[in-house]
């Protein structure tokens, strides 16, 4: 360990360059991860905040929730058999506020359940982002597809769907607005859920994938994240490979005088861990600071859990990269180094 740190101290610029690159890559990864998570919440917080369970769509909907219609009789039977279950529907739409300003929302209605905000006829509960847009409790909202008015009775946190704030309305109002009697989806919480004839079932994750654009959006961002993680591992492998090539003579002599190969590997590992740890600490601090000052409208959510998971992945990938580069140390013959001359 002493030797590893001595080398880092003596060759500061070399290790600073590597550290800076790892910092930039990890910082970028954290920011993109924050954006991916932010966009994911912006797109589907309504579903992501649900407990684990199974979602049911009718078979004819081809795994597209907006094409699904649950037969009313079947819904009645399932809800009777599973009192904790609920049926719900989501449709994109808009309302006009008291100043006739239009706001896009995702209208959500459900059967009476603890899982969704249940509101009475003519009432509406909105996501809190609309409060920031000037809507207040007691405001009267209108919609050209609805003959009556909605009275705002409250706001809820983190209820978004398809990048729009959610508006919880009563089932009869929803039926009038969208001229449909059936609900789109059934949800039964819990792990052991039944197969229901005529319906396809989806896990929470599976249901998220039925949301148009959700999986495409997340897949692109996740691919960037994993590319960055792999790039950081490759950086370690390339950096240490080049360093090792320069130090073949030194390693050979150290082997000649009796140093164990594992001690040389340990030297690389200590250096890798030190560089990664320092780079990650700076990245974490800056990304958390960015979390606090991110612009209001930017969907950004970076939890400590995500940061720590990604940090652990960085360390593992860095370890693999450094170890792969170290395999050449195993092959070094002391004799070769002695014959090479001065290092």
């Amino acid at each position: 360990m002493k030797m590893a740190f001595k080398e880092m101290k003596k060759s500061k610029s070399k290790f600073l360059i590597l550290g800076s690159i790892i910092f930039l890559v990890s910082f970028l990864t954290f920011i993109i991860s924050g954006l991916a998570n932010g966009l994911s919440m912006d797109n589907a917080a309504l579903i992501k905040n649900m407990p684990s369970g199974h979602y049911y769509l009718n078979e004819d909907a081809n795994a597209k929730y907006n094409l699904s219609k649950i037969d009313e009789g079947l819904q009645k039977d399932v809800l009777a058999e599973h009192p904790e279950a609920t049926a719900f529907s989501i449709q994109m739409g808009f309302f006009n506020d008291a100043e006739d300003k239009q706001h896009s929302v995702a209208f959500v209605t459900s059967t009476e359940s603890d899982l969704f905000q249940y509101v009475k006829d003519g009432e509406i509960v909105l996501d809190r982002t609309l409060e920031k847009e000037g809507v207040k409790v007691g405001d009267i909202l209108t919609n050209n597809q609805f003959s009556g008015d909605f009275k705002v009775i409250g706001f809820v946190d983190e209820q978004k769907y398809s990048h729009a704030p959610v508006a919880f309305i009563n089932q009869t109002n929803y039926q009038e607005m969208y001229r449909v009697m059936e609900m789109q989806t059934l949800f039964i919480p819990g792990k052991d859920v039944p197969a229901i004839s005529g319906l396809d079932s989806f896990t929470n994750k599976g249901f998220l994938d039925t949301i148009p654009s959700y999986s495409a959006e997340q897949m692109s961002l996740n691919m960037i994240i994993w590319f960055l993680v792999i790039i950081s591992g490759m950086l370690f492998a390339i950096f240490f490979y080049m360093m090792n090539v320069q130090k073949i003579g030194l390693y050979g002599i150290l082997k000649a005088i009796g140093m164990k190969t594992i001690s040389l590997f340990q030297m690389i590992w200590y250096q890798m861990i030190a560089i990664t740890a320092v780079s990650l600490v700076i990245s974490i601090a800056l990304s958390q600071a960015f979390n606090l000052v991110a612009p209001e409208g930017m969907p950004f959510s970076l939890t400590m859990n995500t940061v720590l998971t990604l940090s652990a992945v960085f360390l593992v990938v860095g370890f693999i990269g450094a170890t792969i580069s170290g395999f050449q140390i195993k092959k070094i013959e002391p004799l070769q180094a002695i014959q090479q001359g001065e290092m």
Binding site: M3, K6, E7, K9, K10, S11, G249, L250, I253, L254, K255, A256, I257, G258, M259, K260, A337, I338, G341, E342, M343
Partner: peptide, 26 residues
């Protein structure tokens, strides 16, 4: 053989082959 080399043998080569980032004492 490694153990013998490290504890019972000493080596001086044509080039000194010192570790460049360690002081003489180190």
């Amino acid at each position: 053989i490694r153990k013998v080399r490290s504890s019972e043998f000493g080596f001086v080569f044509q080039s000194s082959h010192l570790v460049p980032f360690l002081t003489v004492e180190e």
